[in-house]
């Protein structure tokens, strides 16, 4: 069965997460074999995911949390009295 680019895009997340059934995977890869746009799309989305998971974006270092944790504990101890 032929699938369109929008069918492909709808499945791209599951495809990259390895969560598509064998039959669907074969169809998607068949589409890739003749669609340059979706090939670029899947490659760049895969790279995006790799970059996103590699970097420690939105980290929250201990030093940033310390004052917040202290405030919370002070408040709790206050109310426990």
């Amino acid at each position: 069965m032929l699938i369109s680019c929008s069918d492909f895009i709808a499945e791209i997340g599951n495809y990259l997460d390895g969560e598509v059934a064998e039959e669907v995977r074969v169809q998607l890869e068949d589409h890739l074999s003749h669609c340059q746009t979706c090939t670029v799309l899947v490659d760049s989305t895969r790279k995006t995911l790799k970059i996103v998971t590699d970097t420690t974006s939105f980290d929250f270092p201990d030093v940033a949390f310390k004052p917040i944790g202290e405030k919370v504990m002070a408040h709790i101890r206050e109310t426990q009295k």
Binding site: I9, V40, L41, D43, S44, K47, I51
Partner: peptide, 12 residues
């Protein structure tokens, strides 16, 4: 998708 140019091999 609008940006459909290929990416470099090692973007990082």
């Amino acid at each position: 998708p609008r940006q459909v140019q290929a990416w470099v091999d090692d973007p990082e």
